[in-house]
Amino acid sequence: MKRKSASEKIFNVIGYTILTLLAIIAVIPFVMIISSSVTAEHTILKYGYSLIPKEFSTQAYEKIFGFPDDVLRAYGVTIFNTFVGAVIGLFTTAMTAYVLSRKYFVWRNKFSFFFYFTTLFSGGIVPWYILCVRYLNLKEMPMIAQVAPYLLSVFNILIIKSFMQSIPDSISEAAKIDGAGEFRIFRQLMLPLSKPVLASIALFISIGYWNDWYLSFMFVDKAKYYSLQFYLYKILNAAEALARISSLSGHHVGEMPKENIKMAMAVIATGPIILLYPFLQKYFVKGLTIGAVKG
């Protein structure tokens, strides 16, 4: 091992300090969430959140898993959505980005604009909902309804496009001269070369599906198709709306959801994605660099 130079030592000191600080700031609230999730309800209401549970209680988790079938089914739905959405979404996103990154494709800016324009103007929720429900019949197809509308995002397309543009043209040109078609260049050359960005976009798409409650909210009536986040969402956000509506209508609407359950659900929902992330991280470290290909 080479000896570290003075500048590297300075850099390391600064780097470790900054990252450690940021990590601590990020992790403290999360510790509070975990701690609150195992605190007795009345203690939270009275004393607020704390880093160490004032009065330990697993009552929240007991309640959530009091209906283990529902939670497990919701997990199943969400895993399905995430997997199918990420695979199809990532592939299509990358393919679109590939075309837009081709410098010899003279219509690339027109198409980029065609896509980008959709992020600026939207007809709003009403026509979108009418289209999805009345014409695409998404309510009848809950599994498709929870995947299809979020398959592609212009943001992701443009990020991958930008990455692919930075890959030297010489690589794909060589393949083209060898007679490779566009799709083959895309699949066999550009996809492997883009691993780092694909890993991040895969993560983004997965997180998007994992955290989505909106599509369930809009299109799913039957509890057995509820996604995990929707299952949790109904409890998480209800408190405030309940209070408001209860007084608007003058009707008593029952007990508010419990604080510790809110927290426990946040823990449950984020858990798996934290497990997926380290797995994807290897692409950031080991990802094929261009140098390696050229070499």
């Binding site: 929720i125 009403v126 009418i130 809009m218 109904k234 956000n237 209800a238 405030e240 709306a241 509506i245």
Partner: peptide, 15 residues
């Protein structure tokens, strides 16, 4: 669900 009840309520009719 209570949250967004008003929006969803109207969308039910709109669709």
């Amino acid at each position: 669900p209570w949250t967004d009840a008003e929006t969803k309520y109207k969308l039910m009719f709109a669709s």
